[in-house]
């Protein structure tokens, strides 16, 4: 089992009913109202779930390979376009050196691949103290703060 983290440290997992995008589309009515986790594959874009995202307590986005960067856009779109407020979890090939960007894109829990060193992972969340761009957590890019 992968080590589960939030940006502060290890956390306990909570049990939810997992559904895939396909299952949700087919059984939406019967599933609604349950405590659900949607599992998205990297090939499944955020617009496929869209505003339905509000029906889930958790959405986990799978990174089949760490170098597959689609999940970053999916996360930002869920947070910023579809205003998803629930837990957003990175799963799969989740490595220390991508955590900082994942956090900025709106992920809040991270199922670290189990060979990753937890202390190094937690340290990675504070790699930078300043960012140029706006992101899922901070609507203001640096240029709006520079001159205030």
């Amino acid at each position: 089992m992968a080590n589960l983290l939030n940006t502060e440290g290890p956390v306990q997992d909570t049990e939810l009913t997992q559904v895939t995008l396909e299952e949700w589309k087919e059984n939406r009515d019967s599933l609604s109202g349950q405590n659900l986790e949607l599992t998205l594959e990297s090939s499944e874009t955020a617009d496929l779930i869209g505003d339905d995202s509000a029906s889930f307590q958790r959405i986990s986005i799978n990174f089949p390979k760490f170098a597959d960067g689609r999940g970053y856009s999916a996360a930002r779109l869920l947070r910023e376009r579809f205003a998803y407020k629930g837990e957003l979890r990175a799963t799969g090939d989740v490595l220390i050196d991508q955590l900082y960007f994942m956090k900025r894109c709106g992920f809040d829990t991270f199922a670290l691949r189990d060979d990753q060193i937890i202390e190094d992972a937690i340290a990675a969340f504070s790699t930078f103290t300043v960012n140029y761009q706006n992101d899922a957590n901070d609507q203001q890019p640096l240029f709006r703060r520079r001159l205030s």
Binding site: G69, Y72, R76, Q98, F101, R104, F128, N131, D135
Partner: peptide, 14 residues
């Protein structure tokens, strides 16, 4: 340059 530097979403493009 500044916008693209460590852009959190675009570090692993195709």
């Amino acid at each position: 340059r500044q916008w693209s530097t460590f852009h959190p979403e675009f570090a692993y493009l195709p």
